[in-house]
Design a binder for these strands. Structure first.
Lengths: 348, 348
DNA sequence: CACTACATAGAAAGCGCTTGCTGTGACGTT
DNA sequence: AACGTCACAGCAAGCGCTTTCTATGTAGTG
């Protein structure tokens, strides 16, 4: 039914071995023979059987990209950049690799299961993006899995994720702590003393690091933090909206709201507006990530730009072995404070 | 080196066949034997060899999702919904399937190559999202490819894409034409007579259909279109910004700007503001898609909501054979006009 | 001109798994 | 008590490709 290598070989009057060699092009084949084979391939409309090839060669051209939420541009941008470098079809890379992105939805189990699936497929490389989950058992399981993947020859790269020690993985870590500190420092510099903070989900490293940065800035300026000023939520607009209302309820005298990311900040802006407060006259708002839409908020969002595309591209190159891994297996990627209209001095 | 089925069999004191059957669970195996096998699997930390399994069984658990731009939430939302239904790991589906999203970047060649790659992997199903490219040779090539995939047993579903006749593909098509007509009709109803239109790239079906809807609305109200009122660009913010400036240059008397999608509309808003024009007092702006951020624009964007998540979910279910295909292999998914603050009557 | 060296092509042995078919005891039936 | 039935388990034949090793024709060398 389906055309196989043997069929092509028969048609081209050569052995299957020769056809294989023509297709893989790593063995001398006379030009005339090659052409005959190629012609047969074309005429029969032959398509290599991936699994068979992977089995025999004990390698595969699959590269996995794990993301927490594919609908979030934060991940979409990184994934796109990674994929572009992996080369997918048409990319600059020579060999064609199937770069696939897997959506974990932030679930620990799915993260692990996808890794197993990729291990099954004997993936050539795996790139994990975004923050990790801070749950000891899960982290141990992940580390063990990553270790096993690395041992099996799969290149493992972490992009925007803290280093996983002892796993052989290469990490491109975002300096969420530093960015958070700089951002809150900026607000304090403007004169703010009562700052609300809308954090992400509790158990994520990204959440913790950004919050730590925020607190470090407060501490550095001798501002004592009121526990009422911090609310946890998800990394989305809705959560930002609700958290802001909660913050306002707890302490209406806040003069600034720092959000875990830009989507949350947008929600915060909406909540403030709906509460009759002006931005930044009454309350300043700051985000994080600098996603494309942040500049379109009115007023434009002050935020910390993370070079998502650049980091993703680099991760992709490292995964393909086209760029050397950073010394020590880890590189810290810094953010850049983008001061825009959503922050100003407090009203009084 | 790596653990194989045979190793597990040896350890559990059974034949490889039995181990395989335990793992696939579609053949009676005595409970005691099963347990012994499972124990051995666990102890040896055995991971099935995907390619070998796929080769022997002549099937694979890979499902491909093709998107034009993974960094665009339009595709991200659909892809996420599809993937959730495919069941990826942890999904509701029983068998674990590796749902992978492939980023074509809108390039015809990459689209085709990804399809070949998926064909190689003997993918169980393929879902193509977003508009198609209107280039006869490419379309013919695509159709042939889809036909071949379908013939090989791969289920092919088009989500938000026009039907591909004679290919055996099932289509969930967005009613871009109807949505566009309704949107422009709304603007005309408000009293606008001079409407600028920022279209997407020329060769995409989505672009053409939305534009056709726009023109149909104009025609229906007896408004003669000025060719200067239409500008083509990409589906992004930047393009919307530039196109709007161009539109303003060509005809400063325009009272409304209709954008190809929400990102473009956001860029248009920015350009108008930067030109000293108020929205909607001086110029009304309308988008398309109703992406999550559209409601956060100030003023909130009037747009056509496309049920991306719902359509994606349905496409996913059909791809998995968990939902019946629509009669005739095609279903039209309608959009819903969302009237918000960015549109109002013209100034004069 | 005999002999070695090289460039190609083929034969064949797997890669690790699935599955149709063939045992083989333990039961149930007349 | 003899025999048909089941319920399991194993054998072995591939799935379609890669690759090592070997064979062969040709070219280069003294």
């Amino acid at each position: 039914m389906t055309v196989t290598l043997a069929d092509v070989a028969a048609r081209a009057q050569v052995s299957p071995a020769t056809v294989s060699r023509v297709l893989n092009g790593n063995y001398p084949v006379a030009a005339s023979t090659r052409e005959r084979v190629l012609k047969a391939v074309d005429e029969l409309d032959y398509v290599l059987n991936g699994p068979a090839s992977a089995l025999a060669a004990a390698t595969s051209d699959l590269v996995g990209i794990l993301v927490n939420d594919i609908a979030d541009p934060f991940f979409g941008i990184m994934a796109g950049a990674i994929q572009a470098e992996i080369g997918g079809p048409g990319g600059r890379a020579g060999g064609e690799r199937l770069a696939v992105v897997c959506n974990t939805g932030g679930s620990p189990e799915r993260e692990l299961t996808y890794l197993t699936l990729l291990q099954r497929q004997r993936a050539a490389a795996v790139v994990l993006t975004g923050g990790a989950i801070e749950d000891a058992p899960h982290q141990a399981a992940m580390d063990a899995k990553l270790r096993k993947l690395a041992d099996a020859g799969t290149r493992v790269v972490l992009c925007g994720r803290p280093q996983a020690p002892e796993t052989g993985a290469i990490a491109l870590t975002f300096d969420n702590r530093g960015g958070g500190q700089e951002l809150t420092g900026h607000l304090i510099g403007l004169g703010h003393r009562r700052l609300g903070y809308i954090a992400g989900p509790q158990e994520r490293t990204t959440t913790r690091h950004r919050l730590e940065g925020h607190r470090a800035a407060l501490a550095a300026h001798g501002i004592e933090e009121d526990p009422r000023w911090t609310v946890h939520g998800r990394y989305d607009r809705r959560s930002g909206y609700e958290a802001t209302l909660e913050l306002l309820r707890r302490d209406p005298s806040l003069t600034a709201v720092v959000a875990a990311n830009d989507s949350v900040a947008l929600g915060a802006c909406a909540a403030l507006r709906d509460s009759g407060l002006r931005i930044p006259d009454d309350v300043s708002v700051a985000g994080f990530d600098d996603l494309p839409f942040s500049i379109d908020a009115v007023p434009a969002l002050t935020t910390v730009r993370l070079p998502l595309a650049e980091a993703g591209a680099r991760a992709g190159r490292i995964a393909m072995g086209r760029e050397e891994a950073p010394a020590g297996g880890i590189a810290v990627v810094r953010g850049e404070l983008m001061v825009r209209g959503s922050t100003a001095g407090p009203r009084e």
